[in-house]
Simulated assay, not measured.
Amino acid sequence: MPPASVLLVIDMQNATVAIAHRAAETVKVIAGLRERALAAGVPVVMIQDQGGGMDPGTDGWQIAPELAPDSDGLVVHKASPDSFLGTGLDAALKAVGATEVVVTGFATEMCVDTTARQALSHGYDVVLVADGHTTSVRPDSGAYASPDRSIAHHNEIFRNIRFPGRRVRVLPAAEVEFSSAP
């Protein structure tokens, strides 16, 4: 039986998209995945960060218009890099029968990485969309890796991470196949 997928879109809000590396390309990839998921009857969960300058109701806090959920779309609010911590995400995933999360969003080395690892700890298989996550624009110097290096690094980590009883895959958006819960 194929896994029951849910598409997670993490922190793709106006403030983060404004500072994101390859913002337009990443939004386009995620929007395409969202359309395909909805067409397949697969739930889409928007994760919306609040705090740290993204105060609820402000323009920067709003989900990017190209990705904004429908009125009945599921939105989970979080206050840390872990989309499961202190939120209803796990309960929402269980309620729709999810066994696999397809992970996209911002920022690769913080919220995307933390949420993907926590999904494994919560019993879900993970698909990290190789071209569906990004990080902030920054120079290729200093303590942080450049955006391209950070994205490549995390894709490689997830290609090689082993987690007992879980399936972890890194796929380009074009290869992601959605299946809904029976």
Rank of each mutant, 00 (worst) to 15 (best):
M1V: 11
P3W: 05
V6A: 14
L7W: 11
L8T: 04
D11E: 09
N14K: 08
V17L: 09
V17C: 11
A20Y: 02
H21W: 15
A23Y: 07
A24P: 04
E25S: 12
T26N: 10
V27K: 05
G32T: 06
L33I: 10
L33C: 10
R36F: 06
R36E: 11
V44T: 08
I47W: 06
G51D: 08
P56S: 09
T58V: 12
A64D: 15
P65A: 15
P69C: 04
L74N: 01
H77N: 12
K78I: 03
K78L: 03
P81N: 04
P81D: 02
F84A: 03
T87Q: 04
L89P: 00
A92H: 06
L93Q: 04
K94M: 03
G97I: 06
V103A: 01
T108E: 05
E109N: 10
T114Y: 01
T115H: 08
T115Q: 09
T115E: 05
S121G: 01
H122R: 14
Y124Q: 04
D125K: 00
D125S: 07
A130F: 08
T135P: 11
P139W: 02
D140S: 14
S141Y: 05
G142Y: 13
A152Y: 02
A152K: 15
H153L: 14
I157R: 14
F158Q: 08
R162I: 11
G165R: 07
G165K: 05
G165D: 10
R166I: 06
R166C: 10
R169G: 00
V170I: 11
L171V: 12
L171E: 14
A174L: 02
E175T: 04
V176Q: 06
F178M: 10
F178G: 04
